[in-house]
Design a binder for these strands. Structure first.
Lengths: 142, 142
DNA sequence: TATTTTTTGAAACATTGTTGCAATTAAAAC
DNA sequence: GTTTTAATTGCAACAATGTTTCAAAAAATA
């Protein structure tokens, strides 16, 4: 029996294999851009909103996905490079690009968030770099 | 008759002087950190939620305040250096610091968001730099 | 002070975040 | 392949936030 990619990922994180988790993970695997809870709900049909919410939290805690901060008021998530991220310990230092046109947010692995020296008295745990602009898709369209 | 700082600011932006606007602007003037709609509601007492919401939108459009992106799902706003920002044209390039401990978000004028060259096909309108960590206040406390 | 234009406040509704709990299901044990 | 055990789900319920419409109230102007 060959396991799907999503099943394998779940196994590797020692998470129970459930329908919702497979469906959600499949969606992340098949999408380039970061997905919001709403995006996922739309794709999933009539899945339970609360279960989805908890699934996302579980995935984030296990290091499967990370928040893609893009300056909007909607939380979006993207797949982690799962080889690096561990439970409660993320290693996603790349920038996120948010298109003002289509609203999609994507990871930009090529650009890293800068490493800063904290001002006196402060300590820094993580820096995020958010880029706003127009993506190549929308650039062409206009 | 001497005009208050908030009245002057409103006048300069050609906004009508109303109670709500003065109160909200006074709050921004007297706080270091960025304020969320909820923060403001708490300080304002029983002000109308919808009016506050619209006041913030108006202020942002006129260039009085800007969104302080901090990676949380709550929108927060901070005063602009009003000499630079104009309606629909912001010049706030500084980083924002978010304290994981107390949750406060502050502008870090000393640190600027990096200027990046866009990947082929993309265009960049603005970059945001968000710093997470512990502020000097909370550092001492722990 | 009267007129005009903007702003406010209420009602109403959608979306999102969040918890508690009983029913269900997955994994482990037998 | 059942049974047991432990985690997950789905529902109810609630709080916070975002957003529009429209008549009433207030601010600026004449």
């Amino acid at each position: 029996m060959n396991m799907s990619a999503s099943t394998q990922l779940l196994k590797a994180q020692q998470l129970r294999i459930t329908d919702m988790r497979i469906k959600v993970l499949d969606l992340f695997l098949s999408h380039q851009e970061a997905l919001s809870q709403n995006d996922l709900e739309n794709s999933l049909g009539e899945a339970d909103r609360i279960t989805l919410y908890r699934t996302l939290r579980t995935f984030e805690e296990s290091g499967l996905i990370h928040k893609a901060i893009d300056g909007t008021d909607k939380q979006k998530y993207a797949l982690c490079k799962h080889t690096q991220c561990k439970p409660n310990q993320h290693f996603d230092h790349h920038a996120h690009f948010h298109c003002d046109d289509c609203g999609k947010t994507t990871c930009v692995e090529e650009i890293a968030a800068p490493i800063l020296s904290p001002p006196p008295g402060f300590s820094i745990s993580k820096t995020h770099l958010v880029i706003h602009g127009t993506c190549s898709n929308c650039q062409v369209a206009s």
